[in-house]
Deep mutational scan, measured.
Amino acid sequence: MPSETPQAEVGPTGCPHRSGPHSAKGSLEKGSPEDKEAKEPLWIRPDAPSRCTWQLGRPASESPHHHTAPAKSPKILPDILKKIGDTPMVRINKIGKKFGLKCELLAKCEFFNAGGSVKDRISLRMIEDAERDGTLKPGDTIIEPTSGNTGIGLALAAAVRGYRCIIVMPEKMSSEKVDVLRALGAEIVRTPTNARFDSPESHVGVAWRLKNEIPNSHILDQYRNASNPLAHYDTTADEILQQCDGKLDMLVASVGTGGTITGIARKLKEKCPGCRIIGVDPEGSILAEPEELNQTEQTTYEVEGIGYDFIPTVLDRTVVDKWFKSNDEEAFTFARMLIAQEGLLCGGSAGSTVAVAVKAAQELQEGQRCVVILPDSVRNYMTKFLSDRWMLQKGFLKEEDLTEKKPWWWHLRVQELGLSAPLTVLPTITCGHTIEILREKGFDQAPVVDEAGVILGMVTLGNMLSSLLAGKVQPSDQVGKVIYKQFKQIRLTDTLGRLSHILEMDHFALVV
Protein backbone atom coordinates (compact mmCIF):
# COMPACT_ATOMS: atom_id res chain seq x y z
CA MET A 1 0.00 0.00 0.00
CA PRO A 2 1.46 3.38 -0.95
CA SER A 3 2.14 6.01 1.69
CA GLU A 4 0.47 8.58 -0.54
CA THR A 5 -3.22 7.88 -0.95
CA PRO A 6 -4.36 7.56 -4.56
CA GLN A 7 -7.90 8.47 -5.51
CA ALA A 8 -9.95 5.39 -6.31
CA GLU A 9 -11.06 5.38 -9.92
CA VAL A 10 -14.78 5.39 -10.62
CA GLY A 11 -16.40 3.16 -13.21
CA PRO A 12 -19.03 4.43 -15.58
CA THR A 13 -22.09 2.52 -14.35
CA GLY A 14 -23.49 0.42 -11.52
CA CYS A 15 -23.14 0.57 -7.77
CA PRO A 16 -19.76 1.25 -6.14
CA HIS A 17 -20.21 -1.25 -3.36
CA ARG A 18 -20.43 -4.54 -5.20
CA SER A 19 -19.28 -7.42 -3.06
CA GLY A 20 -16.32 -9.40 -4.23
CA PRO A 21 -12.77 -8.55 -5.29
CA HIS A 22 -12.46 -4.92 -6.29
CA SER A 23 -11.00 -3.78 -9.54
CA ALA A 24 -9.33 -0.47 -10.12
CA LYS A 25 -12.79 0.76 -11.10
CA GLY A 26 -14.25 -0.27 -7.75
CA SER A 27 -16.59 -2.95 -9.13
CA LEU A 28 -16.46 -6.64 -9.98
CA GLU A 29 -13.79 -7.49 -12.50
CA LYS A 30 -13.97 -10.74 -14.44
CA GLY A 31 -11.16 -12.10 -16.56
CA SER A 32 -7.96 -14.08 -16.46
CA PRO A 33 -5.59 -14.07 -13.44
CA GLU A 34 -3.14 -12.12 -15.58
CA ASP A 35 -5.78 -9.45 -16.24
CA LYS A 36 -6.58 -9.21 -12.54
CA GLU A 37 -2.93 -8.96 -11.59
CA ALA A 38 -2.48 -6.14 -14.07
CA LYS A 39 -5.63 -4.23 -13.12
CA GLU A 40 -6.12 -4.80 -9.41
CA PRO A 41 -4.89 -1.86 -7.30
CA LEU A 42 -2.69 -2.01 -4.23
CA TRP A 43 -5.63 -0.77 -2.21
CA ILE A 44 -8.97 1.01 -2.50
CA ARG A 45 -9.87 3.95 -0.31
CA PRO A 46 -12.57 3.19 2.29
CA ASP A 47 -13.86 6.74 1.78
CA ALA A 48 -14.13 6.61 -2.03
CA PRO A 49 -17.06 8.68 -3.36
CA SER A 50 -20.30 6.73 -3.40
CA ARG A 51 -21.96 5.93 -6.71
CA CYS A 52 -25.08 4.49 -5.10
CA THR A 53 -28.21 5.13 -7.17
CA TRP A 54 -30.77 5.05 -4.32
CA GLN A 55 -33.18 7.97 -4.29
CA LEU A 56 -36.22 8.53 -2.12
CA GLY A 57 -39.29 7.68 -4.20
CA ARG A 58 -37.43 5.64 -6.81
CA PRO A 59 -39.17 2.30 -7.58
CA ALA A 60 -37.63 -0.73 -5.87
CA SER A 61 -37.69 -2.54 -9.21
CA GLU A 62 -34.89 -0.25 -10.42
CA SER A 63 -32.49 -1.39 -7.67
CA PRO A 64 -29.38 -3.13 -9.09
CA HIS A 65 -29.10 -5.31 -5.98
CA HIS A 66 -30.39 -8.69 -4.87
CA HIS A 67 -32.86 -8.13 -2.03
CA THR A 68 -33.98 -10.46 0.75
CA ALA A 69 -36.86 -10.38 3.21
CA PRO A 70 -36.88 -11.32 6.91
CA ALA A 71 -37.66 -15.03 7.22
CA LYS A 72 -39.44 -16.75 10.08
CA SER A 73 -37.10 -19.05 12.03
CA PRO A 74 -37.83 -22.79 12.09
CA LYS A 75 -38.19 -24.57 15.43
CA ILE A 76 -34.82 -26.26 14.92
CA LEU A 77 -32.15 -24.14 13.26
CA PRO A 78 -29.94 -25.85 10.63
CA ASP A 79 -26.92 -23.90 11.89
CA ILE A 80 -26.15 -20.92 14.12
CA LEU A 81 -26.17 -18.48 11.19
CA LYS A 82 -29.97 -18.75 11.18
CA LYS A 83 -29.91 -17.02 14.58
CA ILE A 84 -28.81 -13.78 12.93
CA GLY A 85 -31.62 -11.25 12.72
CA ASP A 86 -35.12 -11.21 14.22
CA THR A 87 -33.79 -9.47 17.35
CA PRO A 88 -36.21 -8.33 20.08
CA MET A 89 -37.63 -4.86 20.62
CA VAL A 90 -37.67 -4.07 24.35
CA ARG A 91 -39.30 -1.18 26.20
CA ILE A 92 -36.93 0.94 28.31
CA ASN A 93 -39.02 1.67 31.39
CA LYS A 94 -36.93 3.54 33.95
CA ILE A 95 -34.30 5.61 32.15
CA GLY A 96 -36.77 7.53 29.98
CA LYS A 97 -38.83 8.53 33.01
CA LYS A 98 -35.69 9.44 34.96
CA PHE A 99 -34.75 11.99 32.29
CA GLY A 100 -38.25 13.35 31.85
CA LEU A 101 -39.20 11.81 28.51
CA LYS A 102 -42.90 11.88 27.68
CA CYS A 103 -42.58 9.48 24.74
CA GLU A 104 -42.20 5.71 24.70
CA LEU A 105 -38.54 4.62 24.52
CA LEU A 106 -37.83 1.28 22.82
CA ALA A 107 -34.54 -0.60 22.32
CA LYS A 108 -33.74 -2.80 19.31
CA CYS A 109 -31.43 -5.30 21.04
CA GLU A 110 -28.89 -6.32 18.39
CA PHE A 111 -26.72 -8.14 20.93
CA PHE A 112 -29.18 -11.05 20.60
CA ASN A 113 -27.63 -11.93 17.24
CA ALA A 114 -25.59 -15.15 17.20
CA GLY A 115 -22.20 -13.42 17.42
CA GLY A 116 -23.39 -10.78 19.86
CA SER A 117 -23.69 -7.68 17.68
CA VAL A 118 -25.46 -5.86 14.87
CA LYS A 119 -22.43 -6.60 12.68
CA ASP A 120 -23.45 -10.26 12.39
CA ARG A 121 -26.09 -9.12 9.89
CA ILE A 122 -23.65 -7.48 7.48
CA SER A 123 -21.01 -10.19 7.91
CA LEU A 124 -23.38 -12.93 6.81
CA ARG A 125 -24.87 -10.78 4.05
CA MET A 126 -21.44 -9.88 2.60
CA ILE A 127 -20.42 -13.55 2.56
CA GLU A 128 -23.71 -14.74 1.05
CA ASP A 129 -23.61 -12.09 -1.68
CA ALA A 130 -19.96 -12.90 -2.45
CA GLU A 131 -20.82 -16.60 -2.69
CA ARG A 132 -23.82 -15.84 -4.89
CA ASP A 133 -21.78 -13.86 -7.44
CA GLY A 134 -18.96 -16.42 -7.47
CA THR A 135 -16.35 -14.30 -5.72
CA LEU A 136 -15.94 -16.49 -2.63
CA LYS A 137 -15.09 -20.12 -3.31
CA PRO A 138 -14.36 -23.06 -0.99
CA GLY A 139 -10.89 -22.75 0.53
CA ASP A 140 -10.63 -18.98 0.01
CA THR A 141 -9.41 -16.54 2.66
CA ILE A 142 -11.46 -13.66 4.10
CA ILE A 143 -9.49 -10.63 5.34
CA GLU A 144 -11.19 -7.68 7.02
CA PRO A 145 -10.07 -4.48 8.77
CA THR A 146 -12.47 -4.01 11.69
CA SER A 147 -12.94 -2.70 15.21
CA GLY A 148 -13.82 -6.26 16.19
CA ASN A 149 -17.56 -6.89 15.87
CA THR A 150 -17.55 -7.31 12.09
CA GLY A 151 -14.54 -9.58 12.58
CA ILE A 152 -16.46 -11.72 15.05
CA GLY A 153 -19.41 -11.94 12.66
CA LEU A 154 -17.14 -12.89 9.75
CA ALA A 155 -15.18 -15.39 11.86
CA LEU A 156 -18.44 -16.98 13.01
CA ALA A 157 -19.70 -17.34 9.45
CA ALA A 158 -16.27 -18.47 8.22
CA ALA A 159 -16.18 -21.19 10.89
CA VAL A 160 -19.55 -22.51 9.71
CA ARG A 161 -18.83 -22.09 5.99
CA GLY A 162 -15.23 -23.31 6.10
CA TYR A 163 -13.21 -20.24 5.10
CA ARG A 164 -9.88 -19.08 6.47
CA CYS A 165 -10.38 -15.75 8.26
CA ILE A 166 -7.80 -13.04 9.04
CA ILE A 167 -8.92 -10.05 11.12
CA VAL A 168 -6.89 -6.82 11.28
CA MET A 169 -7.83 -4.58 14.21
CA PRO A 170 -6.39 -1.60 16.13
CA GLU A 171 -4.65 -2.20 19.45
CA LYS A 172 -7.26 -0.26 21.46
CA MET A 173 -9.92 -2.91 20.88
CA SER A 174 -10.74 -5.09 23.86
CA SER A 175 -8.98 -8.32 24.77
CA GLU A 176 -12.39 -10.01 24.96
CA LYS A 177 -12.90 -9.44 21.23
CA VAL A 178 -9.48 -10.94 20.54
CA ASP A 179 -10.26 -14.00 22.69
CA VAL A 180 -13.58 -14.60 20.94
CA LEU A 181 -11.96 -14.23 17.51
CA ARG A 182 -9.24 -16.73 18.41
CA ALA A 183 -11.82 -19.17 19.76
CA LEU A 184 -13.64 -18.96 16.41
CA GLY A 185 -10.41 -19.86 14.62
CA ALA A 186 -9.59 -16.44 13.18
CA GLU A 187 -6.04 -15.21 12.77
CA ILE A 188 -5.51 -11.74 14.27
CA VAL A 189 -3.19 -8.90 13.31
CA ARG A 190 -3.04 -5.80 15.55
CA THR A 191 -2.20 -2.29 14.32
CA PRO A 192 -1.40 1.02 16.08
CA THR A 193 -4.53 2.78 17.32
CA ASN A 194 -3.25 6.23 16.37
CA ALA A 195 -2.37 5.32 12.75
CA ARG A 196 -4.38 7.32 10.20
CA PHE A 197 -6.70 5.22 8.06
CA ASP A 198 -4.62 5.99 4.93
CA SER A 199 -1.33 5.03 6.58
CA PRO A 200 0.34 1.74 5.56
CA GLU A 201 0.39 0.87 9.29
CA SER A 202 -3.38 1.31 9.78
CA HIS A 203 -5.78 -1.63 10.01
CA VAL A 204 -7.01 -0.74 6.52
CA GLY A 205 -3.48 -0.50 5.10
CA VAL A 206 -2.27 -3.74 6.68
CA ALA A 207 -5.37 -5.63 5.51
CA TRP A 208 -4.77 -4.58 1.90
CA ARG A 209 -1.09 -5.52 2.14
CA LEU A 210 -2.09 -9.00 3.33
CA LYS A 211 -4.64 -9.30 0.53
CA ASN A 212 -1.95 -8.50 -2.04
CA GLU A 213 0.32 -11.18 -0.54
CA ILE A 214 -2.13 -14.06 0.10
CA PRO A 215 -3.52 -15.98 -2.91
CA ASN A 216 -7.31 -16.34 -3.22
CA SER A 217 -7.93 -13.82 -0.47
CA HIS A 218 -10.70 -11.23 -0.39
CA ILE A 219 -11.45 -8.07 1.55
CA LEU A 220 -15.24 -7.91 1.65
CA ASP A 221 -14.76 -4.28 2.69
CA GLN A 222 -17.55 -3.22 5.02
CA TYR A 223 -16.66 0.43 4.34
CA ARG A 224 -17.60 0.18 0.64
CA ASN A 225 -19.72 -2.94 0.29
CA ALA A 226 -23.39 -2.36 -0.56
CA SER A 227 -24.24 -5.53 1.36
CA ASN A 228 -23.61 -3.52 4.54
CA PRO A 229 -26.50 -1.03 4.28
CA LEU A 230 -28.57 -3.54 2.28
CA ALA A 231 -28.58 -5.97 5.21
CA HIS A 232 -30.26 -3.31 7.33
CA TYR A 233 -32.51 -1.98 4.56
CA ASP A 234 -33.85 -5.48 3.87
CA THR A 235 -34.07 -6.93 7.40
CA THR A 236 -33.33 -4.65 10.36
CA ALA A 237 -35.57 -1.83 9.13
CA ASP A 238 -38.40 -4.21 8.21
CA GLU A 239 -38.20 -5.83 11.65
CA ILE A 240 -38.44 -2.41 13.31
CA LEU A 241 -41.47 -1.46 11.20
CA GLN A 242 -43.19 -4.77 11.96
CA GLN A 243 -42.44 -4.61 15.68
CA CYS A 244 -43.71 -1.02 15.88
CA ASP A 245 -46.69 -1.62 13.57
CA GLY A 246 -45.24 1.08 11.34
CA LYS A 247 -45.57 3.71 14.07
CA LEU A 248 -42.36 5.41 15.20
CA ASP A 249 -41.41 9.07 15.40
CA MET A 250 -37.66 8.96 15.98
CA LEU A 251 -34.80 6.52 15.48
CA VAL A 252 -31.43 7.03 17.20
CA ALA A 253 -28.34 5.09 16.10
CA SER A 254 -24.62 5.44 16.74
CA VAL A 255 -22.51 5.52 13.58
CA GLY A 256 -19.35 3.65 12.59
CA THR A 257 -19.19 2.47 8.99
CA GLY A 258 -22.63 4.02 8.60
CA GLY A 259 -24.25 0.91 7.16
CA THR A 260 -26.74 0.51 10.02
CA ILE A 261 -28.11 4.05 9.99
CA THR A 262 -28.02 4.30 6.18
CA GLY A 263 -29.93 1.08 5.54
CA ILE A 264 -32.51 1.60 8.28
CA ALA A 265 -33.01 5.30 7.54
CA ARG A 266 -33.55 4.79 3.81
CA LYS A 267 -36.32 2.24 4.46
CA LEU A 268 -37.91 4.40 7.15
CA LYS A 269 -37.85 7.45 4.86
CA GLU A 270 -39.80 5.36 2.35
CA LYS A 271 -42.27 3.73 4.73
CA CYS A 272 -42.49 6.17 7.64
CA PRO A 273 -41.49 9.59 6.25
CA GLY A 274 -42.31 11.51 9.42
CA CYS A 275 -39.72 9.60 11.48
CA ARG A 276 -36.71 11.72 12.45
CA ILE A 277 -33.30 10.03 12.10
CA ILE A 278 -30.71 10.95 14.75
CA GLY A 279 -27.02 10.09 14.26
CA VAL A 280 -24.61 9.67 17.18
CA ASP A 281 -20.90 10.35 16.66
CA PRO A 282 -18.22 10.29 19.42
CA GLU A 283 -16.09 13.34 20.17
CA GLY A 284 -12.84 12.90 18.25
CA SER A 285 -14.60 11.49 15.17
CA ILE A 286 -15.49 13.46 12.03
CA LEU A 287 -18.70 11.78 10.84
CA ALA A 288 -21.20 14.35 12.12
CA GLU A 289 -22.62 17.30 10.22
CA PRO A 290 -22.38 20.27 10.20
CA GLU A 291 -18.58 20.17 10.31
CA GLU A 292 -18.49 22.59 13.28
CA LEU A 293 -19.77 19.77 15.51
CA ASN A 294 -16.50 17.90 14.96
CA GLN A 295 -14.22 20.73 16.10
CA THR A 296 -12.40 19.50 19.20
CA GLU A 297 -8.88 19.06 20.51
CA GLN A 298 -9.72 15.46 21.38
CA THR A 299 -8.40 12.94 18.88
CA THR A 300 -8.91 9.64 20.73
CA TYR A 301 -11.83 8.03 22.54
CA GLU A 302 -12.38 4.82 24.48
CA VAL A 303 -15.80 3.77 23.18
CA GLU A 304 -15.39 1.10 20.50
CA GLY A 305 -17.06 0.42 17.18
CA ILE A 306 -18.28 3.93 16.34
CA GLY A 307 -16.67 7.03 14.85
CA TYR A 308 -13.89 7.34 12.25
CA ASP A 309 -11.32 9.78 10.93
CA PHE A 310 -12.76 9.39 7.41
CA ILE A 311 -16.24 9.23 5.87
CA PRO A 312 -16.95 5.61 4.82
CA THR A 313 -18.34 5.17 1.33
CA VAL A 314 -21.50 3.40 2.55
CA LEU A 315 -22.49 6.23 4.92
CA ASP A 316 -25.28 8.34 3.42
CA ARG A 317 -25.39 11.41 5.64
CA THR A 318 -28.28 12.92 3.65
CA VAL A 319 -30.76 10.60 5.41
CA VAL A 320 -29.71 11.77 8.89
CA ASP A 321 -31.91 14.63 10.11
CA LYS A 322 -29.73 15.68 13.04
CA TRP A 323 -26.37 14.72 14.53
CA PHE A 324 -25.32 14.69 18.18
CA LYS A 325 -21.82 14.23 19.59
CA SER A 326 -21.27 11.91 22.55
CA ASN A 327 -18.39 11.53 25.00
CA ASP A 328 -16.86 8.54 26.75
CA GLU A 329 -18.05 9.40 30.25
CA GLU A 330 -21.73 9.60 29.33
CA ALA A 331 -21.41 6.55 27.05
CA PHE A 332 -20.12 4.29 29.81
CA THR A 333 -22.34 5.82 32.49
CA PHE A 334 -25.46 5.15 30.41
CA ALA A 335 -24.26 1.66 29.41
CA ARG A 336 -23.86 0.76 33.09
CA MET A 337 -27.27 2.33 33.75
CA LEU A 338 -28.88 0.19 31.04
CA ILE A 339 -27.39 -2.90 32.65
CA ALA A 340 -28.21 -2.01 36.27
CA GLN A 341 -31.67 -0.49 35.78
CA GLU A 342 -33.06 -2.19 32.67
CA GLY A 343 -31.17 -5.51 32.68
CA LEU A 344 -29.91 -4.89 29.14
CA LEU A 345 -26.41 -6.38 28.89
CA CYS A 346 -25.16 -3.99 26.20
CA GLY A 347 -21.85 -2.39 25.22
CA GLY A 348 -20.50 1.14 25.43
CA SER A 349 -21.82 2.39 22.08
CA ALA A 350 -25.33 1.53 23.28
CA GLY A 351 -24.68 3.92 26.15
CA SER A 352 -23.74 6.63 23.64
CA THR A 353 -26.98 6.04 21.77
CA VAL A 354 -29.24 6.22 24.82
CA ALA A 355 -27.36 9.23 26.24
CA VAL A 356 -28.22 11.08 23.03
CA ALA A 357 -31.75 9.66 22.84
CA VAL A 358 -32.78 11.16 26.20
CA LYS A 359 -31.71 14.56 24.82
CA ALA A 360 -33.09 14.27 21.30
CA ALA A 361 -36.42 12.75 22.36
CA GLN A 362 -37.24 15.65 24.68
CA GLU A 363 -39.11 17.13 21.70
CA LEU A 364 -41.45 14.11 21.47
CA GLN A 365 -44.81 14.07 23.20
CA GLU A 366 -46.90 11.47 24.98
CA GLY A 367 -48.09 8.84 22.54
CA GLN A 368 -45.00 9.18 20.35
CA ARG A 369 -42.23 6.62 20.08
CA CYS A 370 -38.42 6.67 19.93
CA VAL A 371 -36.42 3.58 18.93
CA VAL A 372 -32.73 3.23 19.82
CA ILE A 373 -30.31 0.68 18.35
CA LEU A 374 -28.22 -1.18 20.94
CA PRO A 375 -25.37 -2.54 18.77
CA ASP A 376 -23.48 -5.07 20.88
CA SER A 377 -23.08 -7.00 24.11
CA VAL A 378 -21.22 -6.29 27.34
CA ARG A 379 -19.38 -9.58 26.70
CA ASN A 380 -16.79 -7.60 24.72
CA TYR A 381 -16.00 -5.20 27.57
CA MET A 382 -15.80 -7.21 30.80
CA THR A 383 -12.35 -5.82 31.60
CA LYS A 384 -13.24 -2.32 30.40
CA PHE A 385 -16.24 -0.19 31.38
CA LEU A 386 -17.83 -3.02 33.37
CA SER A 387 -14.80 -2.88 35.69
CA ASP A 388 -14.85 -0.24 38.45
CA ARG A 389 -11.06 -0.22 38.43
CA TRP A 390 -10.90 0.52 34.71
CA MET A 391 -13.48 3.27 35.10
CA LEU A 392 -11.47 4.80 37.95
CA GLN A 393 -8.21 4.60 36.06
CA LYS A 394 -9.74 6.32 33.03
CA GLY A 395 -11.32 9.02 35.18
CA PHE A 396 -14.95 8.02 34.50
CA LEU A 397 -15.57 7.16 38.17
CA LYS A 398 -14.46 8.90 41.36
CA GLU A 399 -13.16 7.19 44.48
CA GLU A 400 -16.14 8.42 46.48
CA ASP A 401 -18.46 6.60 44.06
CA LEU A 402 -17.23 3.28 45.49
CA THR A 403 -18.03 2.01 48.96
CA GLU A 404 -15.64 -0.94 49.40
CA LYS A 405 -13.18 -0.75 52.30
CA LYS A 406 -9.77 0.64 51.37
CA PRO A 407 -6.31 -0.01 52.95
CA TRP A 408 -4.82 2.58 55.32
CA TRP A 409 -2.57 4.13 52.67
CA TRP A 410 -5.30 4.54 50.02
CA HIS A 411 -5.89 8.28 50.46
CA LEU A 412 -2.25 9.28 50.97
CA ARG A 413 -0.74 11.50 48.27
CA VAL A 414 1.94 10.31 45.87
CA GLN A 415 4.20 13.13 47.08
CA GLU A 416 4.40 11.41 50.48
CA LEU A 417 6.46 8.64 48.88
CA GLY A 418 9.41 11.06 48.70
CA LEU A 419 10.29 10.08 45.13
CA SER A 420 13.53 11.33 43.60
CA ALA A 421 13.89 12.59 40.02
CA PRO A 422 14.17 9.62 37.63
CA LEU A 423 16.97 8.75 35.27
CA THR A 424 16.15 10.10 31.79
CA VAL A 425 17.68 9.47 28.37
CA LEU A 426 17.74 11.47 25.14
CA PRO A 427 16.09 9.95 22.05
CA THR A 428 19.34 10.26 20.09
CA ILE A 429 21.48 7.91 22.17
CA THR A 430 21.82 4.34 20.94
CA CYS A 431 19.93 1.30 22.15
CA GLY A 432 23.21 -0.34 23.15
CA HIS A 433 24.26 2.64 25.28
CA THR A 434 20.80 2.85 26.89
CA ILE A 435 20.94 -0.83 27.88
CA GLU A 436 24.36 -0.25 29.47
CA ILE A 437 23.03 2.74 31.44
CA LEU A 438 19.95 0.91 32.71
CA ARG A 439 21.96 -2.13 33.79
CA GLU A 440 24.58 0.04 35.48
CA LYS A 441 21.95 2.00 37.43
CA GLY A 442 19.78 -1.05 38.16
CA PHE A 443 16.68 0.32 36.40
CA ASP A 444 14.19 -1.53 34.19
CA GLN A 445 12.87 1.55 32.40
CA ALA A 446 13.48 5.26 31.91
CA PRO A 447 11.61 8.25 30.46
CA VAL A 448 12.84 9.52 27.10
CA VAL A 449 12.96 13.33 27.02
CA ASP A 450 14.15 15.83 24.45
CA GLU A 451 16.69 18.56 25.17
CA ALA A 452 13.90 20.88 26.35
CA GLY A 453 12.78 18.30 28.91
CA VAL A 454 9.56 17.35 27.10
CA ILE A 455 8.59 13.73 27.76
CA LEU A 456 8.49 11.75 24.51
CA GLY A 457 7.74 8.34 25.96
CA MET A 458 9.21 5.47 27.96
CA VAL A 459 11.83 2.90 27.12
CA THR A 460 12.08 -0.45 28.90
CA LEU A 461 14.97 -2.86 29.15
CA GLY A 462 12.75 -5.83 28.28
CA ASN A 463 11.34 -4.24 25.14
CA MET A 464 14.78 -3.20 23.89
CA LEU A 465 16.25 -6.66 24.43
CA SER A 466 13.34 -8.41 22.71
CA SER A 467 13.51 -5.96 19.78
CA LEU A 468 17.23 -6.63 19.42
CA LEU A 469 16.75 -10.40 19.54
CA ALA A 470 13.96 -10.19 16.95
CA GLY A 471 16.18 -8.12 14.66
CA LYS A 472 13.78 -5.17 14.67
CA VAL A 473 16.56 -2.80 15.79
CA GLN A 474 20.34 -2.85 16.02
CA PRO A 475 22.46 -1.77 19.04
CA SER A 476 23.58 1.24 16.99
CA ASP A 477 20.00 2.42 16.34
CA GLN A 478 18.67 5.39 18.27
CA VAL A 479 16.56 4.55 21.30
CA GLY A 480 13.77 6.67 19.85
CA LYS A 481 12.86 3.67 17.67
CA VAL A 482 11.74 1.56 20.64
CA ILE A 483 9.94 4.02 22.92
CA TYR A 484 6.44 3.51 24.27
CA LYS A 485 4.52 6.63 23.28
CA GLN A 486 1.43 5.68 25.27
CA PHE A 487 1.91 5.73 29.01
CA LYS A 488 -0.02 6.71 32.11
CA GLN A 489 0.79 9.92 33.97
CA ILE A 490 0.03 10.70 37.58
CA ARG A 491 0.49 13.87 39.63
CA LEU A 492 2.15 14.26 43.02
CA THR A 493 -1.21 15.37 44.40
CA ASP A 494 -3.01 12.20 43.25
CA THR A 495 -3.74 9.47 45.77
CA LEU A 496 -1.90 6.19 46.14
CA GLY A 497 -5.26 4.55 45.50
CA ARG A 498 -5.35 6.02 42.00
CA LEU A 499 -1.72 4.95 41.46
CA SER A 500 -2.66 1.45 42.64
CA HIS A 501 -5.41 1.19 40.02
CA ILE A 502 -3.01 2.29 37.27
CA LEU A 503 -0.35 -0.24 38.28
CA GLU A 504 -2.92 -3.05 38.27
CA MET A 505 -3.29 -2.52 34.51
CA ASP A 506 0.07 -1.04 33.48
CA HIS A 507 3.67 -1.89 34.31
CA PHE A 508 4.59 1.68 35.23
CA ALA A 509 3.28 5.22 35.62
CA LEU A 510 5.13 8.48 35.16
CA VAL A 511 4.87 11.02 37.99
CA VAL A 512 4.70 14.54 36.52
Rank of each mutant, 00 (worst) to 15 (best):
L136M: 12
S19V: 03
A207D: 04
D179E: 11
I261N: 01
C275K: 00
L124W: 09
K97V: 07
S23D: 09
I95T: 07
G162Y: 10
I240H: 00
A231Q: 07
N93H: 06
K36C: 15
L154R: 00
R182Q: 14
P88V: 06
M89A: 03
H218K: 06
P78C: 08
L28E: 09
A8Q: 10
V10E: 08
I188L: 09
S175I: 12
K98M: 13
T260K: 01
G85D: 07
D35S: 08
E110S: 04
I261G: 03
D249E: 06
E104R: 03
P12V: 11
V252R: 07
L220N: 00
P145H: 05
E187Y: 03
D47L: 02
G96D: 11
V118L: 12
N93G: 06
E131M: 04
L230C: 10
D129F: 06
A69P: 10
T262P: 01
L230V: 12
L230R: 03
V206Q: 06
Q243M: 07
T236K: 07
H65Q: 05
L124T: 10
R121Q: 04
K97L: 12
L248D: 01
S199Q: 07
E239Q: 10
K211H: 04
V10F: 13
D47F: 02
E110T: 00
R224G: 11
A24I: 11
N216Y: 07
I142E: 00
G85A: 09
I152E: 01
R276G: 03
N225D: 01
V160N: 06
L241F: 11
H66A: 07
P64K: 07
K177G: 00
G20Q: 10
H65M: 04
G134K: 07
R224W: 02
E171L: 02
L106Y: 09
A114H: 11
H17E: 10
E239L: 03
E239A: 07
A155G: 09
L77P: 03
P74Q: 09
Q242L: 14
C103W: 05
P33Q: 14
C103I: 06
G139V: 01
N149V: 00
R266D: 06
L28H: 10
Q243F: 06
R182F: 07
R161Q: 10
I142N: 02
M89Y: 06
K137C: 02
I44P: 10
L101W: 04
K108D: 05
D47E: 11
I44N: 11
